[in-house]
């Protein structure tokens, strides 16, 4: 298997990368880790005319934190996030999600930003980010802008990032107080694309009532699904079996999965409810500790 021919550029600065993107327009494509792009190029499902390799942009490879948020550069390797104490201590949900991505060998090369812009609806990083909230920073030759994560995913494999733009970094808020989180997914084998993936983060008040919650499901829609209707009814409540059942009913009603080789739509809908209950219970128990 060989990809079709393409032009290759390897800029050393973000500015050069952005001008190259501007020049190449719709023909240009950024390559970072290449763990999704190269397979689809090898199979000729994608054939960009021009690849702009950002692996030399070391200024985009960082994990930093201040009091309120953690900042992650787009080129940060997934394996670095996996072993980062800063991530583990401040965004436990992301720490829990990353080992589900592919395998050690692909996480060594795959990047944080690459997973976001690829926007596979079952991917782990998009899900974890939707459940934490955050801001995506995007640059082009002309301007820089910020997008809330809720507005970032447009549809299957499509984000708000335009062909001449580069995702540079993401800011993720550090949740304070009695925080609980959970991530889980089901796939036939470890490292496969998830059939259904789930993430949630919540906080409790002093009376063990849920004061904030973000439940997100993957593999059930074209984009990671923030289940707003379910999140609303949990506010001010303690987590009980009857609440879990109500939430599961809402989830079953709103998800609109497709059938494919791996699972039927009905099975995915069933799994969405099962995993919803499971991760909410785990997150709640963790917050109560």
């Amino acid at each position: 298997m060989k990809p079709p021919k393409f032009e290759y550029y390897r800029p050393n600065t973000v500015d050069t990368a952005l001008s190259l993107l501007e020049e190449s327009g719709f023909d240009g494509k950024i390559i970072a880790g290449g763990q999704s792009l190269v397979p689809i190029m090898n199979m000729r499902l994608a054939s960009p005319e021009c690849l702009i390799d950002i692996n030399q942009l070391h200024e985009l490879d960082f994990i930093e934190a201040d009091d309120d948020k953690v900042k992650i550069g787009t080129l940060t390797r997934q394996s670095r996030i996996e072993i980062s104490d800063l991530i583990k201590n401040n965004i436990g949900l992301l720490h829990e999600a990353v080992p589900f991505i592919g395998h050690v060998q692909t996480r060594n090369r795959g990047t944080f930003g690459g997973s976001l812009v690829h926007a596979d609806p079952t991917a782990e990083i998009p899900l974890a980010l939707m459940a934490s909230g955050g801001t995506v920073h995007i640059a082009s030759a002309d301007e820089t802008r910020e997008v809330q994560i809720e507005d970032f995913f447009v549809t299957y494999l499509t984000t708000d990032v335009m062909p001449t733009e580069l995702l540079t970094e993401v800011h993720i808020p550090i949740w304070k107080g009695r925080v609980g989180f959970a991530f889980d997914e089901i796939s036939r084998r470890h490292g496969d694309f998830a059939i259904v993936a789930s993430a949630c983060q919540l906080t409790l008040d002093d009376h063990n009532k849920i004061s904030n919650v973000r439940l997100v499901l993957g593999g059930v829609e074209a984009v990671p699904l923030l289940v707003e209707g379910a999140n609303e009814i949990m506010i001010g409540e303690e987590l009980s079996d009857s609440l879990l059942n109500k939430v599961a009913d809402i989830v079953t009603g709103v998800v609109d999965p497709e059938s494919d080789l791996h699972a039927s739509a009905d099975y995915r809908r069933h799994l969405a409810a099962v995993y919803t209950k499971r991760i909410l219970q785990t997150a709640y128990n963790r917050a109560r500790r």
Binding site: Y8, V38, N42, Q105, R109
Partner: peptide, 29 residues
Amino acid sequence: CEHGVCGACTVIVNGTAVRSCLMFAVQTD
């Protein structure tokens, strides 16, 4: 497999094990 699944082509690039079928040679200059 030439698409990153089987792992047979794994080599160590700059001290890290990666799939050599998911990189272009030109990237290793």
